[in-house]
Amino acid sequence: MVREYTVYGNDFVRAGEVSGKIKTILKGLGYPPEMIRRAAITTYEAEMNMVIHADGGRVRASFSPEEVVLVFADQGPGIADLNLAMQAGWSTASETARQLGFGGGMGLPNIRRYSDALDIDTKVGTGTTLTITIRPGGRNL
């Protein structure tokens, strides 16, 4: 089963809606709670990244019994220094994002920590695509 969603840039009211929809599907399909929690954390962080940094983007979620693959593709500014972006606490987020409780530089580190596989394809000026894989019985919280 595949579902696609649009994330809207700088819309801090709707931010998190897509993650909520994906979580509802995961619950409905009966995935284990620990996996659902990890998927919820990673999708929410990736969605917030799109809202904060990339003026939105598209999300494609594929569900199978073995794994859930979540692809977050944006046409934002790209990540200039991926090593820095993967460091906890490093951030280029706006003051608005920080006031909302995000932009603390935990986005990508959280995604890496709670996913079973993470691929980042990014190019400055072109955009970023995150491919996140979550498996039942993967990393425990």
Partner: peptide, 20 residues
């Protein structure tokens, strides 16, 4: 007050306490 920190904790809180 940092939601990313709440997510980073990764636990299963029943209660979320915040000034945000």
């Amino acid at each position: 007050d940092m939601l990313s920190d709440v997510l980073a904790m990764g636990g299963a809180p029943d209660v979320l306490i915040t000034g945000l």
